[in-house]
């Protein structure tokens, strides 16, 4: 289903504000498979486009992907300390910043958040939605909506 419900004072209310399909085993670049891809957009970037980000509950921080990093570096002058982060591509250096991100819905409302992102020119992978974003929202994955053979699955989200 596109909506989940919870009981509040004897009434059923919607649990999520919006939802969208997720992309299982999405090929982000040649040979690079995102196990769960979700649609997102950085609304403050000029000429921005929807991108498919890796949903990674095991990542401590969200990470700006290689394509969006180039656009962010045009408009953002990070002032923070350089930190090192361990990634599946090794140890990389970058800075933390708070950025606006929109999780795009095809039903209901897109969810807009300002969350902590790791920015690094050394990161050559996709945008990653990690726990620094996920800890501020509610989310659920339904891989069987409406049935296993007909749809890649649904990502439900709200605040």
């Amino acid at each position: 289903m596109a909506y989940l419900y919870e009981k509040e004072n004897h009434h059923w209310v919607t649990w999520n504000g919006g939802s969208n399909v997720f992309y299982p085993f999405h090929e982000d670049a040649p040979g690079e498979i995102l196990i769960i891809g979700i649609e997102c957009i950085f609304p403050l970037l000029k000429d921005t486009a929807v991108e498919i980000a890796l949903l990674d509950t095991g990542a401590q921080y969200s990470v700006v992907g290689r394509n969006s990093y180039a656009a962010w570096s045009q408009i953002l002058q990070p002032t923070g300390d350089v930190i090192k982060m361990s990634t599946r591509r090794g140890l990389i250096k970058g800075v933390l910043e708070r950025l606006e991100i929109s999780l795009v819905a095809d039903i209901g409302e897109s969810l807009n958040l300002e969350t902590v992102f790791f920015l690094s020119e050394e990161w050559t992978g996709p945008t990653v939605i990690g726990f620094s974003t996920l800890a501020q929202m509610r989310m659920a994955l339904d891989p069987f909506y409406p049935n296993p053979a007909a749809e890649p699955g649904r990502f439900l989200f709200g605040q």
Binding site: G18, N20, V50, R98, D106, E109, S110, L113, V116, E151
Partner: peptide, 27 residues
Amino acid sequence: RIFAKPKKLPSTPASSVGNHANVAWIR
């Protein structure tokens, strides 16, 4: 500032048009 409390932003209407078409094809 980096680790301040989360800032809630207003939601916006669903906008994933291309995805609708992809989903329709898949269905």
